[in-house]
Every structure is written in C-alpha cells, then in structure tokens.
C-alpha cells in the first residue's frame, strides 16, 4: 500500500505574532515554521498503517524553513520517501498549496493520502479537501481511526460529544486526520541525526502556485477582548489564599 502524508508548515503560535506593515497579513520574516500538529497525527497514522499492512510512506512538505527537520524526523519514524516541493510557499494559500501538491501526488500512485484535518492559519479552506478535489478523490475529515481492507478503507469520523461515525471510503482517498490511533511517537534527536545521514530528500518543483479561490484580506488585527481577567498577584501562598477566598465567595467551597 502506498501511503502519502501531506505536511503543511505553520508559524509557531508560541512566538509573538505581528501584522506586517501593509496591515493585511502576518509578518512572517522571523516566523518559526513548525509542523501543523494535526499533520503530525496524520504521519503517525500513516506509520501505524504501514506497520500493520506493509507498504511505503511518502512524506511531502513545502520548501519552508524547517522542512528538512520535519522530513528527516519523519524518516526517523520510518517514513520511506521524503519529498520537498520547491517554490515560494511563505505566502501561499491552501488553494495554491493543494494545486501544487496535487500535480506531484498524482504521479505517486497513492492508495491513501493523509493530512491534518486543519491548520490554524486556514483562511481559504483546508488543504486536505482542496487537494482531494484537485485529484478527484473522495474526502472525509475529522478522522480518528483508519483500517484498510479489500481495496477500501473503514474510518472513524468524529462528531461532537464523543459520537463516532464508521464510514467506508473507496480507495484511493484523502483523509483529514484529527487524531492518530495513538499519540505521535517521539523520536530521539540521535535517530533524527542518523536519518539525516542515511536518507535523502528529493526536491521537486511546484508547477503551479495559483492562489485563486481565496477572498482578499483587507485588514488583519489582534482581537480586542471585551474584557480581560482580573489578575491575582502575589507569591504562590498569597495567590492560593486569595483563590481559597474566591472559591468560598463563589459557593464551591
């Protein structure tokens, strides 16, 4: 079975976010790009399926700062083939990403294409369903379990409140992974270093970075909260004493 995992890199939310001088986009000059956390779950699900059914896992990522790290980490987790898609992806939206990736994934004869259900900067839709339509494949998102039998996949799709739907999806398909069946595995830095020596990254050119399909953004801003919490200050002891008082006042103690 050929499994392809599509990875999107996103600015790390732990870093301070600033708006650029134009006022309509993020200033990404110093952004730290990290793997979209749900793509990490997609990779884990791909590796789990390979362990269960055999086959190969190909990981595809856009050429952004940090892509090599993400790809070699995937290799250390036992991904077989690493592809970096060359092009200027800093400002590329998901429509452009999906079109570019579809041109490359088309040739990979994938049975299953896994990607994160969404990313925090999805302003024009999510990469998975956009890619699925470019490839004319079915799409199901919010997936937290995948089994493969007899040329079709049986997936578990999440609804609110813990309800799951079991669905059958014809292969090949694109699935938007919400959570892998087990938490993404940890790999030691030494294994990643080793992967850097033993595996290589193929570089392929993005044929097309066509962004059509998004709305124009007039302005970006940081939300002004209607209110801000009243901050309780002091040493841990002082804060605790105030909290105990507060719990009493609120009638829960």
């Amino acid at each position: 079975m050929n499994i392809v995992v599509l990875i999107k890199l996103v600015p790390d939310l732990v870093e301070e976010l600033t708006i650029d001088s134009g006022g309509a986009g993020l200033d990404l000059t110093f952004a730290r790009w990290i793997i979209n956390e749900f793509d990490d779950h997609a990779l884990e699900q791909g590796i789990l399926l390979k362990e269960r059914h055999g086959g190969t896992v190909t990981v595809v990522a856009p050429d952004l700062e940090g892509a090599d790290d993400v790809l070699f980490t995937a290799a250390a987790k036992d991904a077989d083939r690493l592809i970096k898609v060359k092009g200027d992806f800093t400002m590329a939206n998901n429509h452009a990403l999906a079109r570019a990736f579809s041109a490359i994934i088309k040739d990979l004869q994938a049975d299953l294409i896994l990607t994160g259900v969404q990313a925090h900067n999805d302003l024009d839709g999510s990469a998975g369903p956009l890619l699925a339509e470019c490839l004319q494949l079915p799409y199901v998102g919010y997936v937290s379990g995948v089994a493969v039998n007899d040329g079709k996949s049986t997936i578990r799709k999440e609804y609110p409140g813990g309800l799951l739907a079991e669905m059958e999806v014809a292969l090949p398909t694109v699935l938007g992974i919400q959570a892998a069946e087990q938490p993404p595995r940890y790999v030691a830095v030494s294994k990643v270093r080793q992967a850097m020596k033993t595996s290589s990254i193929e570089e392929l050119d993005a044929s097309d970075l066509n962004p059509d399909g998004a709305a124009e953004i007039g302005r970006m801003f940081q939300p002004e909260a209607a209110a801000h919490a009243e901050m309780i200050e002091g040493s841990p002891e002082e804060v605790s004493a105030k909290l105990v008082g507060l719990f009493k006042e609120l009638g829960v103690l």
Partner: peptide
Amino acid sequence: ICGGKIMAEGELP
C-alpha cells in the same frame, strides 16, 4: 485564525 490570536477582515467575494 491562529488559535484565536488573529482576526482577518475583508469584503465578501
């Protein structure tokens, strides 16, 4: 977007 840290405004296409 961005986990609630950023708002983006524009004309409805």
